[in-house]
Amino acid sequence: MANPVSLLAPALIPSWNFFDVIAASPRVEYALADARDAVLDAWTEFRPRPQRLSPVAMLARLFWNARWNESLFLVSCAERLVEEPTAHGEDEIFRRIAADLAGQPDAAPWLSFRLLFIDPTGEREVLYQAAPRRLADLDLR
């Protein structure tokens, strides 16, 4: 775990290089299974964006944008996981997928996720796949 002072330093001495290079972009996909060693072949995109969003909804998100900001946080976790895998990044993604699935009592008991990266040419590549975890074991408090 990085210490908080080292995490603060880039904020106090910022680089401001927003969007200097458009890198490959991650999508989080998850799969459910009945057993830990089951073959995972039915991947679902986590929180796909809506087809359309009205201007009123866009403006309303100025004031309340919790799910979208959480999804952007998962993008950061995904990028960090591929650069330098940590338990923290994997835990964050598992917990937030599991929290969304908590309203589905009939969901299969084993959960896995993978990180699909789309590069500027449109090529898609899976760069990370997490070992399955039992939904019941994930801490959602």
Binding site: F19, S25, P50, S71, V75, P120
Partner: peptide, 16 residues
């Protein structure tokens, strides 16, 4: 670069 942002990045809020 901006075309890439719209085409495949995680940022556009709607598919449209």
């Amino acid at each position: 670069a901006l075309r890439q942002v719209f085409a495949f990045s995680a940022y556009p809020v709607a598919e449209s």
